[in-house]
Design a binder for these strands. Structure first.
Length: 187
DNA sequence: CAGTGGATGCTCT
DNA sequence: GAGCATCCACTGT
């Protein structure tokens, strides 16, 4: 993968491992993606299961390359990279970053926290990067977003997704091997 | 460390 | 009214 941008018009399962090691910034604040999960329209654990549209998941039906942001547990925001073709609900949930730019801004947004926990988890990541509902549906190839493909090969580990109760058998969680910025270790 | 429970609000049935 | 794609503080080793 030597392109500058990740091709997001592919299935979430193809995109997810390619996002590990890529860089994401929001208004210049962010870092290296170290953990993601794939969700597709045939997946009972996904918001877009059965391609059923709702007010919440509308952005999932945009063509690959947009943001899908939803409220989690009433408190947190979670950011997805929408994948695939328009009209098919699939996306990759961004679960953790290794923070590299704007550490002071992230620390201020997150409060008194160690660097390791700044973006270790989907809710923490959005808080650190300032992602809210206002970003839902925005294209990822324009400001405030910047998404750059990784330039070197990385070692990727997989495992079951976190925090779900349906379709738990699939190993659709992808992480950067050995990273200390994961939300949880891989088995 | 591991395990537990509360906070919190929106979406969908 | 149930059920969350979570986080944090607190407990007990």
């Amino acid at each position: 993968m030597t392109q500058r941008h990740v091709n997001l018009r592919r299935s979430a399962h193809a995109v997810a491992p390619d996002l590990v090691g890529a860089e994401l910034y929001v208004d210049g604040v962010g870092g290296v993606i170290v953990e993601v999960e794939a969700y597709d329209h045939e997946d009972p654990a996904a918001h877009g299961f059965g391609n059923r549209r709702s007010e919440r998941n509308a952005s999932m039906f945009l063509p690959g390359g947009h943001a899908y942001v939803y409220r989690s547990y009433g408190i947190h925001w979670c950011l997805n990279v929408v994948c695939g073709e328009e009209g098919v609900a699939e996306a990759v949930l961004l679960r953790a970053l290794e923070p590299t730019r704007g550490l002071d801004v992230m620390r201020a947004r997150r409060g008194l926290h160690q660097e390791r926990l700044l973006c270790a988890g989907p809710g923490r990541l959005c808080q650190a990067l300032g992602v809210t509902k206002a970003h839902d549906g925005l294209p990822l190839d324009r400001p405030p977003f910047e998404l750059r493909a990784r330039r070197h090969d990385v070692e990727i580990v997989t495992g079951p997704r976190i925090g779900i109760t349906k379709a738990v058998e699939h190993e659709w969680r992808y992480g950067l091997a050995g990273s200390r910025f994961l939300s949880r270790r891989f088995a």
